[in-house]
């Protein structure tokens, strides 16, 4: 991972071959993934659907460098994630990936801007922290601590933090799960903006099937496998999504 710049030859942000993940062993073994093959083209906004336990979070964790596959291979661009050691995975997350979580995971002891700066300080090519906050419409609240922000605002700070490093990939695990529909739509709007303006590949895990309408591509998980892949010809604007 010495070259931070994306390699132009790779048409796919992610590719995987027969990825499996088994938790535990013997009779107690749980097969979370049973052979996943997927391709995610660069720059797409992908929505990942599936019931609980279908393996969608497990797959995204592996793609995000948070977890390891039991077998199979995963590539990010031309680099094989499944062959990396811990230090290399840390560098991968640091340089290429932004994360947005259901529970925001902000540092309570840092202000909104400082939470963003947490990432910009270690990134290679970050945008200005204020710019990132402006992107999510929170430039006015830059000096507030998380305790002073609403849930939606906290999630937007988390998104600003994730996009501030100008990542090539943005992983969002239930980013609207803890939000009401109005706030949820606003957050989705921000994610779409990031996808369009920064050209980042965005993967969104959600239970809300309606969200699929705004995606370029929809991956549906079931029983540890991809059940089907839908490529949307026409996309809805987040504001048009019925919750």
């Amino acid at each position: 991972m010495s070259e931070p710049a994306p390699k132009p030859f790779a048409p796919f942000a992610f590719r995987s071959e027969d990825v499996t993940k088994v938790y535990g062993s013997g009779a107690a073994a749980v097969h979370a993934l049973r052979g996943v093959d997927l391709e995610v083209p660069r720059g797409e906004l992908v929505v990942v659907l599936g019931p609980s336990g279908s393996g969608k979070s497990t797959m995204l964790n592996i793609m995000g460098g948070l977890d390891r596959a039991t077998s199979g291979r995963v590539w990010f661009m031309d680099d094989e994630l499944t062959a990396m050691d811990d230090a290399a995975l840390t560098q991968f997350r640091r340089r290429h990936v932004g994360f947005v979580f259901q529970f925001y995971n902000l540092m309570p002891s840092l202000t909104a801007r400082e939470n963003v700066e947490l990432v910009t300080e270690i990134a290679d090519n970050p945008m200005d922290a204020n710019e990132a906050l402006a992107l999510v419409g929170l430039e006015e609240r830059a000096n507030h601590f998380p305790a002073q922000l609403s849930g939606g605002e906290q999630q937007r700070v988390a998104i600003a933090r994730a996009v501030a490093k100008q990542p090539e990939v943005l992983f969002c695990d239930e980013p609207t799960g803890a939000l009401d529909s109005k706030t949820g739509r606003a957050v989705l709007r921000v994610l779409k903006d990031v996808n369009e303006r920064l050209g980042a590949t965005v993967l969104i895990i959600t239970h809300a099937a309606a969200t699929a309408a705004m995606a370029d591509r929809v991956l549906s998980f079931a029983d540890g496998k991809i059940r089907d892949v839908i490529v949307n010809k026409t996309k809805l604007d987040p504001g048009e999504i019925q919750w």
């Binding site: 540092m107 309570p108 002891s109 840092l110 400082e114 947490l118 300080e121 601590f145 305790a147």
Partner: peptide
Amino acid sequence: APADYTRSVSFSEQLKKVLDQPSRM
């Protein structure tokens, strides 16, 4: 709710130049 750090230290601009985010935490 996130622990409230509102009434914690605010750093002057000079200090901010010295302290990075982890240090501020």
